[in-house]
């Protein structure tokens, strides 16, 4: 069924349309920006600073600052923006997140604020965020690819508290040009860690596993072809020299 609109009402319709557009625009403030507010945890209000922006691929990205909790620029996970709402996870903000994972659910309100709840530890606290400026998202530098000289399997040993631990490191490049890997540490128990971040410089390589705050770093451009460095985990450091695993030849370019 179609309707003809009386000419006399057209200006009002236009005005109405404008108002409607304005209302929609007001009900859906641009999520991009720096947002600040307080989660009303009873007895311990938690200040939150949230940065949200679009990355070059127009995908929403964000990070959070939690003053007093030692969190600066922790990436938001599962960031979802709809016309009316904004959701994200805070898994990276806490070193030992509980289940269910901490998350924020916000409504994009007509007054230009984001209002909703922080969910953590099975609790929910009211959260109101106001825009305070342009976005300053902390974007972690992406992993680099590793040279062919470093791809493959490496083995080594470190000692901590008088106990030896055998390490097997496996590194491989994956499209679009970032290395990934796995670290297996065998001591009194066997721990398998995913390598989350790889940075290979001209002479130095850093491998970070977020899972246990475990890092391997050292010089890879050595005369004998080893990676000479150390493992670092919290307050602990130990010398670690990685050799090519027997039978694991360097990958030729």
């Amino acid at each position: 069924m179609t309707h003809r609109v009386n000419f006399r009402f057209r200006p009002m319709l236009a005005l109405g349309s404008l108002l409607l557009v304005a209302t929609v625009a007001r009900s859906a403030p641009d999520p991009a920006g720096r947002w600040e507010g307080v989660a009303e945890i009873p007895g311990a209000p938690m200040r939150m600073i949230v940065d949200i922006a679009r990355d070059p691929q127009h995908k929403w990205v964000g990070s959070v600052i939690l003053p007093g909790l030692g969190v600066k620029g922790a990436p938001l996970n599962d960031l979802t923006v709809t016309d009316a709402a904004l959701h994200f996870g805070l898994t990276s903000a806490f070193s030992t997140p509980l289940e269910p994972a901490p998350a924020v659910r916000l409504a994009r309100r007509t007054d230009g604020t984001l209002a909703g709840e922080l969910h953590e530890g099975g609790h929910a606290a009211r959260l109101l965020l106001r825009r305070t400026g342009p976005s300053q998202v902390d974007i972690a530098p992406p992993s680099t690819a590793v040279s062919a000289a470093l791809e493959g399997k490496w083995v080594g040993r470190y000692e901590l508290g008088g106990h030896p631990r055998d390490v097997t490191l496996t590194l491989a490049n994956h499209p679009p040009g970032a290395a990934r890997g796995e670290i297996v540490v065998v001591g009194r128990r066997t721990t398998t860690l995913r390598v989350d971040h790889v940075v290979q410089g001209a002479e130095f390589i850093t491998l970070q596993s977020n899972q246990a705050g475990f890092r391997i770093e050292g010089r890879w451009a050595t005369a004998d072809g080893t990676i000479q460095g150390q493992m670092v985990q919290g307050p602990f450091e130990a010398t670690l020299v990685l050799h090519r695993a027997a039978g694991a030849e360097e990958k030729m370019p």
Partner: peptide, 18 residues
């Protein structure tokens, strides 16, 4: 107060030991 405990009364260590 301060969500020392999770809803099921475990210690809320992420908030307690940052």
């Amino acid at each position: 107060r301060g969500w020392v405990l999770t809803a099921d009364r475990r210690f809320n260590n992420p908030l307690l030991f940052p």
